[in-house]
Amino acid sequence: MLIEERLDKIKSIIEANKSATIEFLSETLDVSKDTIRRDLIKLEQQNVVRRTHGGAVSANREAMILDYDQRSSRLNRIKEQIAQKAAEIVKDNSSILFDSSTTVEAAIMQLGNKRLYAITNSLTHAKLLAKLEKAEITLLPGKLHKDQLFLYGSETVKKIEQYNTDYTLLGVFALSKDGVFIHTEEEGLVKRQMIAQGHHVIALADHTKIDTTGFFKVCSLAEIDVLVTDQQPEPQMMDYLNENKVEVIVANEQRGEK
């Protein structure tokens, strides 16, 4: 394979997934890790990628916008790892606001036999919560988003204002030093109110969501208590998180440790 052809393949992989590890690229393209490292240096010089520890991310840090089916089928194993860690934080006999993200959906399936009072704006989440024997569920009112299957609008936000919950489980579309972002105001306003009503805000974000941005700002970093992710954020991003007193929990796929 010619070097230009290989560089094009690396670009395509990283653009499609927003990131890739050196190990994955090496195995996929059947070349050495040293070759991949040199290729990533070239692509970084072209401002196509940004190298990270163990791999690279797309230099375009605008987060991807996907519909519900696309989101639910993406990074499932990583979501499960993050979900397990999030579920460990939640104490028995708790009240929880669940937003409509698919990573939060994965967390629901890890809650097991905990006694919960659950409030959500997601049709799919309500259906999953109904399978938990000890869960009492409230489905928020509002307008139905037909593609994403969540309820939104002024009626939804006003209803959320009536609650004071132990936790808010928040799926992250994009997170940067400036805070948490989403691609639509309608969903962002619902998430914002859920954050305001939760005593302990647990944000769930795989590594592709970190150091990205979106159209509508949901909250500042200081409004998050815990960030559960699958890879340690870059040092500069960790500095911002530490400055805002955000506890970072990393779900390590190999060892299952923080």
Rank of each mutant, 00 (worst) to 15 (best):
E133A: 13
I160C: 03
P141F: 07
L175N: 01
Y152E: 04
L129P: 00
H145P: 03
L132M: 12
A174Q: 09
Y117W: 13
S122D: 11
F150I: 06
K159M: 14
S101P: 04
E161S: 13
L169V: 06
D147V: 13
G112T: 08
L129I: 10
A126S: 15
S101G: 15
H125T: 04
G171N: 05
G153S: 10
K134N: 15
P141N: 11
T120I: 10
R115K: 15
L111D: 01
Y167Q: 08
Y117V: 11
I119R: 01
L140Q: 02
N164A: 11
K143G: 02
L170C: 07
L128R: 14
E161P: 02
I96N: 01
V157S: 09
L132Y: 10
L151P: 00
S101Q: 06
H145R: 10
S154L: 04
N113D: 15
L128M: 10
A174H: 04
K127Q: 10
L97C: 05
T156S: 12
K131T: 11
L149K: 12
R115H: 13
A118H: 02
K114N: 09
K114G: 09
S176V: 05
N164L: 08
Y117A: 07
K177D: 14
L97N: 03
L175C: 04
I96K: 00
S100T: 07
G171E: 01
A126E: 01
G153D: 11
K143R: 12
N164C: 06
L97I: 14
T165C: 09
V104A: 07
Y117K: 11
R115M: 05
A130V: 03
L144N: 11
A174W: 06
I137D: 00
K131P: 04
I96H: 01
Q110Y: 11
E105S: 14
A126Y: 00
H145W: 09
N113Y: 10
N113M: 09
E161L: 03
V104H: 01
G142N: 08
L116V: 04
D147F: 13
Y117D: 08
V172Q: 04
A106D: 03
T103K: 04
V172N: 02
D178R: 12
E155I: 14
N164S: 14
D166V: 07
A107C: 14
L116Y: 07
G153Q: 13
V157D: 03
H145V: 05
L170A: 09
D166L: 09
L139C: 06
L175Y: 04
L116T: 09
V157W: 02
L170P: 01
E136K: 12
T124M: 12
L116E: 05
Y163C: 03
F150T: 01
A135Y: 02
L144H: 06
G112V: 09
V104C: 07
L175D: 03
D147Q: 14
E133F: 08
Q110H: 12
H125Q: 14
I96T: 05
T102F: 02
F98H: 00
F173S: 13
T168D: 03
K146R: 11
P141T: 09
A130K: 08
K134S: 13
K158D: 13
Y163F: 15
Q110K: 15
N164Q: 14
A106L: 06
A174R: 03
S154G: 03
E105A: 10
T120A: 07
T102K: 02
I108P: 00
